Amino acid sequence: MRLLIVEDEKRLATALAKGLTAEGYAVDVVHDGLEGLHRSGTVPYDLVVLDIMLPGMNGYRVCAALRAAGNDVPILMLTAKDGEYDEAEGLDTGADDYLTKPFSYVVLVARIKALLRRRGATASPVLRVGELTLDTAARRVHVGETEVVLTTKEFAVLEQLALRPGAVVSKAEVLEHVWDFAYDGDPNIVEVYVSTLRRKLGAGLIHTVRGAGYRLAGRR
């Protein structure tokens, strides 16, 4: 899944991006409210971490503008302000959750995971497609009773397919959600990961729909 961090404290933004990347997310970072609004409106992010005190345009205005445009991306607001009125204003503009600095990184990750589960309209972190089971919280995969060890990126690619079982997911959609904005390599990297997943999970689980993308079938 692909996240956007809009935070002008560069050291904090870098630390968050590093930690969330290690969690398996593709992460883009911008340091200006106007750029955050532009990027959020042009890239299909799964979640935005949005600071309130930003140059160019503050987080309240960014959030309000996204909601006014019909963009329902989950927004987790961050702020150095501490007060119930600040929190209320953030939520009133359309934010989904709110954290006051300094915050626990563990709590941040938990809030992000909760918002992403809510986005998927399910309270369960477990995805099941046929005999394939993905525990998105523990990052574990089983085929039947057998656990299969995947790398962070392999899991992320598989998760994108499992979120839409039976549907065709294009190579471009996988790239958009699994690799960050800075990636400028060969888009055929998706084919490489799909090939590796087939080798680990079984050749019949992921079907290629020629000219369209991939479909997770859940059967070997």
Rank of each mutant, 00 (worst) to 15 (best):
Leu134Cys: 03
Val209Trp: 06
Thr136Cys: 05
Asn58Pro: 08
Ala65Gln: 14
Arg117Met: 13
Arg215His: 02
Val6Gly: 00
Ala88Gln: 13
Arg11Trp: 10
Leu3Cys: 03
Leu175Asp: 03
Val190Gly: 01
Lys200Thr: 08
Gly90Cys: 11
Ile52Phe: 04
Leu132Thr: 04
Leu78Thr: 10
Leu12Trp: 03
Glu176Lys: 10
Ser170Trp: 00
Gly83Met: 00
Arg117His: 11
Phe103Glu: 12
Asp8Ser: 11
Ala212Asp: 12
Glu154Trp: 01
Gly218Phe: 05
Val141His: 02
Leu134Phe: 00
Ala172Thr: 12
Thr42Met: 09
Lys18Phe: 15
Leu158Met: 01
Thr21Ser: 15
Arg139Glu: 09
Leu66Asn: 07
Val6Leu: 04
Ala65Ser: 15
Arg199Lys: 13
Gly144His: 10
Asn188Ile: 02
Ile75Ser: 03
Val30Asn: 09
Leu91Cys: 04
Lys171Trp: 02
Ala110Tyr: 08
Ala80Glu: 07
Glu145Thr: 14
Leu20Ile: 05
Glu159His: 02
Thr14Asp: 14
Thr100Ile: 14
Leu161Gln: 01
Ala68Gln: 13
Val73Ala: 01
Thr42Ile: 13
Ala15Thr: 12
Gly94Met: 08
Val190Tyr: 00
Lys101Arg: 15
Val106Ala: 15
Leu116Cys: 08
Gly185Tyr: 07
